[in-house]
């Protein structure tokens, strides 16, 4: 059997957690390994944990240490962790705030179980999954951004052709193996390029790469929307 995706739920509402757990664990490939009712509980668990989970489902509004602050701490302590924000807030500022913290996805609490499961699977496989609403919000945000970063992007040497090609494929939700096959280069080379891309765009993960590409017009929102 394929290795299960290990998930931690962070939400202050115990009944909500147990509901989500029930639904997720009906899926044979999903496993909830820990439940925390606030950021502190999560951090304490991670400190002791022998193995990090694959995915963290993070509520925003929690007592003690809320989801935004917790995500910030995770970014410095465990940058490899993939965080999915799961909140009842569905407004632009909440979404963009979490995207800027580098979350791999943002879903609202009244999403259907299918949407949640799909998001978890996609984030696990590709490193990110943004639905239409989130993509639009990321895309709109570039208009408000100062163009300090854009200058370097316009520099013809900013990305090599190969890097650009790989960035495009990442945005289109291809994983390393698939990109390697499509471009007939080794997965190892793809990983090197990907790390260079993250270095150049100052992204902490693949999700950050996609946000960067979208906000700097390296890929159009239409292309991404057509795909999803």
């Amino acid at each position: 059997m394929e290795k299960q995706i290990e998930i931690i739920l962070v939400d202050d509402e115990a009944l909500f957690r147990s509901g989500i757990k029930f639904i997720l664990e009906r899926e044979p490939n999903l496993k909830v390994v820990f439940e925390a009712s606030n950021g502190n509980e999560l951090l304490n668990y991670l400190k002791r944990a022998k193995r990090l989970p694959d995915i963290i489902l993070m509520d925003l509004k929690m007592p003690m240490l809320n989801g935004v602050e917790t995500t910030k701490i995770l970014n410095t302590l465990y940058p490899q962790l993939k965080v999915i924000a799961l909140s009842s807030y569905d407004t632009r500022s909440f979404i963009i705030n979490m995207i800027n913290e580098g979350v791999s996805s943002y879903i609202i609490k009244n999403s259907t179980p299918q949407e949640m499961i799909e998001t978890i699977n996609k984030v696990h496989q590709k490193g990110f999954y943004y639905n239409k609403l989130t993509l639009k919000i990321i895309n709109d945000e570039k208009k408000n951004k100062s163009n300090t970063a854009v200058k370097s992007v316009l520099d013809p040497d900013f990305l090599t052709n190969r890097e650009y090609q790989i960035l495009e494929h990442i945005c289109l939700e291809f994983n390393t193996q698939e990109i390697a096959e499509k471009l007939s280069i080794s997965p190892r080379t793809i990983e090197v390029h990907r790390n260079n891309l993250m270095e150049k765009t100052k992204s902490k993960n693949v999700a950050g790469l996609v946000v960067f590409a979208l906000q700097n017009d390296l890929i159009s929102i239409e292309t991404l929307l057509k795909m999803s």
Partner: peptide, 14 residues
């Protein structure tokens, strides 16, 4: 209200 209804919805899905 919202959190309560969220849990109700989850349980209906269950």
């Amino acid at each position: 209200i919202s959190s309560g209804l969220n849990v109700v919805a989850i349980n209906c899905y269950m």
